[in-house]
Amino acid sequence: MPESARDRFDVIPHAQGRIGAHRAENPGMRGWFVLLWAAVATAVLIAVGIFAAMLAMGRISFDGGTPVPSVSRTATASAPALDTSYAVLVLNATTANGLAASTRDTIIAAGFAGNAVAASDASTQDFPATTVYYKTEADKSAAQALANLIGATKIGLSDQYGDDVVAGQKQLTVVLGLDLAKNAPTTEPTPADTSGDGSAG
Rank of each mutant, 00 (worst) to 15 (best):
A143S: 06
A21K: 13
N148S: 12
S72K: 12
N183I: 00
A5Q: 14
T131M: 02
A53S: 13
S120Y: 06
D7I: 02
S102C: 07
A75F: 12
A113D: 12
P185N: 05
T187R: 15
G17V: 01
A43K: 09
P67N: 04
I50K: 04
S120K: 11
S123R: 12
A113I: 02
T124P: 01
I150R: 02
V132E: 01
V132F: 07
T106P: 01
E25I: 11
A145K: 08
A142F: 08
Y161D: 04
A122S: 15
T153R: 15
Q125K: 11
T136C: 07
T186M: 06
A129F: 08
T95Y: 04
R6M: 11
D83S: 10
G168V: 06
Q16S: 13
A56L: 08
T131F: 05
I19E: 13
A122D: 12
I46T: 05
V132L: 03
A129E: 10
K170D: 14
A87N: 06
L146W: 05
A47G: 14
N183D: 14
V71M: 09
D179S: 08
D179G: 04
T173G: 02
T186Y: 02
Y133I: 09
T124W: 03
A147V: 10
N26R: 11
M1N: 07
T74C: 00
E3K: 13
Q169P: 03
T74D: 03
R6D: 04
S72W: 04
V117R: 05
E3Q: 13
D179Q: 04
I150Q: 03
L176Y: 05
V90M: 07
V68E: 13
Q160L: 08
F127T: 08
L146F: 07
A116W: 03
E137Y: 01
T42D: 02
S102W: 02
G49D: 10
T187L: 15
N92C: 01
V166F: 00
A118G: 02
S78T: 15
T94C: 05
I12S: 11
T153M: 10
S4L: 14
A109C: 06
G168P: 07
R6S: 09
I150W: 07
T42H: 06
S158A: 04
A122M: 01
G64H: 10
A39W: 09
G111N: 05
K140S: 03
K154H: 09
V90R: 01
R18G: 07
L45W: 09
G156Q: 10
A53C: 01
A119N: 01
S123A: 13
Q144D: 13
A100L: 01
L149A: 08
A143G: 00
G114E: 15
Q144R: 14
G65Q: 11
A47I: 09
S78P: 11
